[in-house]
Design a protein around this nucleic acid. Structure first.
Length: 520
RNA sequence: GGGCGUGUAGCUCAAUGGCAGAGCAGUGGCCUUUUAAGCCAUUGGUUGAAGGUUCGAGUCCUUCCACGCUCACCA
């Protein structure tokens, strides 16, 4: 039966090989009948005079004016429910603004038209309908359909086929919940899960608010290369690609830092970039191979001023996007208003582990102290890496309320300026919210001779095959030798901020098309 | 990469080693103010893939695939 039908369609419409389900074959048959009955299932143009919300508002104001003027509209949207009841049919369509009910009656549009609607139209189809607005017996503002047509027939049914709207809230009685399907077919996820659409509206508003904040303070938005001959600015393994004509290996950037700071050499005092970084590393709930980063650099600022700017920027953004500086994340109520708690890294680690790393000036000594407390130690780690692991394993999970951890060891911060009086430490902070690292900033190193020494240190301390080893960037040093103003720099993962603002436990929830293994 | 878990109809889920099922959607019918419409009837399956144990496997075993959680890794 199915084979016969399939063969019929290959012949009839020239379909390419495709395993249509029986539900899809049903709809293909409806599509054929529509054409036969003179209704094009994929017309070139659509008309619309009102969105669903505009139509409802227009009707409400007409009602209020007591002149009972007719409100005639043409709506367009996607069928989300159908209730045929003999000679009448109720349906809801959904557009970008919301949902609205349609009412079709045989003695107004004719029995044949009603039959076409009931028989050939399905949930998920995009349609257009015109008529006059009215209020049903139960009070719902509804379009009395005088004419309608198909705008785009849906062959594949949308996943959860049933839900209702109560007081404007969509209540789903069946939900597309399988994570893999939701990510692989994000279009279907978006089409049926309003909460998912909301996440990406919040994400877009977040980026807009960050831009506003920086633009208002005289920052210039710039774009720097994604394809770079030398990667740098972070400790991460890069993606490698190749330019055929130049016969040259190129790296997808792992940060914007070195290019943005070159711009400070060029007298651009305040710059920022919002764009994509790529890191060829593990994927987990807070890491995606490509992610969106905000970096800014501000001449004549130090890390303490950047700290103040950061807490202002995040609370401003929350206020703009969510209308509040109090958010809920993972069951925690988090207050983003400034000032944020400030905790020196040394003090923080001392509090959670009892280890004062200032008492252990060498990796060997610190490793011994950690072993004494049964903390696992990577034998090849530098002192800085050991401190960083204590931070990540013991301190980070405790930092639910916004906290700036500041003053970091020099050897894991090759681009940050040393602290006056303590050459083993640098002026650097990281912002933590919800137990998650959100941002990273420092007083930028602008001494070309010190910078060169740092690159050389990285070369010594990291094994030659360590892909996090920071490569020497001669052009960056050349730029710095022209003179780079003292400046404070800042980097933040936009995806993580979007996670906080949408209470999403997984970074994939805030990325439209997250990376998954290829199918099959 | 390791550990744990999941994978059954379009969707959400059942099924002690013993006939693969339900709700929704779909299809046919009744129904002129419904809204998870209702009522009657009905279609739909390579149980993620391959192999094995067994009289008999959705269920037990092995391998593989995908996803989730977690650990490792990861500024």
């Amino acid at each position: 039966m199915v084979l016969l039908a399939r063969g019929f369609y290959f012949e009839r419409i020239g379909l390419m090989s495709q395993n249509y389900s029986s539900l899809e074959l049903n709809r293909l048959e409806k599509l054929r009948r529509l054409r036969q009955r003179g209704m094009e299932p994929y017309p070139t143009r659509a008309e619309r005079t009102h969105t669903s919300q505009q139509a409802i508002q227009a009707f409400e104001s007409a009602e209020a004016s007591e002149q009972s003027e007719k409100v005639v509209v043409t709506l367009a949207g996607r069928i989300r429910s159908m209730r045929p009841m003999g000679k009448i049919t109720f349906a809801h369509i959904e557009d970008g603004a919301g949902r609205i009910q349609l009412f079709l009656r045989a003695n107004e549009i004719g029995e044949e038209q009603l039959e076409i609607f009931n028989r050939e139209f399905d949930l998920g189809d995009f349609i257009q309908a015109s008529g006059e607005m009215f209020r049903t017996r139960t009070g719902e503002i509804t379009l009395r359909v005088a004419s309608f047509r198909m705008l785009a027939k849906a062959i594949t049914p949308l996943p959860p086929a049933k839900d209702e709207v109560v007081d404007g809230e969509v209540i789903q009685h069946a939900t597309l919940s399988e994570t893999e399907l939701r990510y692989r077919q994000r279009y279907a996820d978006l089409a049926v899960n309003p909460d998912v659409r909301r996440i990406f509206r919040i994400r877009a508003a977040t980026v807009r608010a960050l831009r506003n904040f920086l633009d208002e303070r005289g920052f210039l938005e710039v774009e720097t290369p994604v394809l770079q001959p030398i990667y740098g600015g972070a400790a991460a393994r890069p993606f490698i690609t190749y330019h055929n004509q130049l016969k040259q290996e190129l790296y997808l950037r792992i940060s914007f830092e070195l290019y943005l700071k070159r711009l400070l050499v060029g007298n651009l005092e305040r710059v920022y970039e919002i764009g994509r970084d790529f890191r060829n590393e593990g994927v987990d709930r807070t890491h995606n191979p490509e992610f969106t980063q905000l970096e800014f650099y501000c001449a004549y600022a130090d890390y303490l001023q950047v700290m103040e700017l950061t807490e202002q920027m995040i609370s401003y953004t929350a206020q703009q996007v969510l209308g509040s500086t109090t958010i809920t994340y993972g069951g925690h109520t988090i207050h983003l208003d400034p000032p944020w708690r400030r905790l020196e890294l040394r003090q923080g680690i001392l509090e959670v582990t009892g280890i004062d790393f200032a008492q252990h000036p060498t990796a060997e000594s610190l490793a011994a102290a950690m072993k004494a407390k049964d903390i696992p130690v990577d034998p090849n780690a530098t002192r800085g890496k050991l401190i960083d692991s204590l931070l990540g394993d013991y301190l980070e999970p405790t930092l639910i309320q916004p906290t700036f951890i500041y003053n970091y060891p020099r050897d894991i911060s090759p681009l940050a300026k040393s602290m006056p009086g303590d050459p083993s430490m640098v002026e650097r902070f990281e912002g933590y919210v919800g137990g998650m690292e959100l941002c990273n900033a420092f007083t930028e190193l602008n001494d070309p001779l010190d910078q060169e020494a740092r690159f050389l240190e990285m070369g010594r301390d990291y094994a030659a095959d360590d892909e996090e080893r920071h490569p020497m960037d001669e052009d960056y040093l050349r730029a710095m030798r022209y003179g780079m103003p003292p400046n404070g720099g800042f980097g933040m993962g936009i995806d993580r901020l979007a996670m906080l603002f949408t209470d999403s436990p997984n970074i994939r929830e805030v990325i439209l098309f997250p990376h998954l293994r290829k199918e099959e």
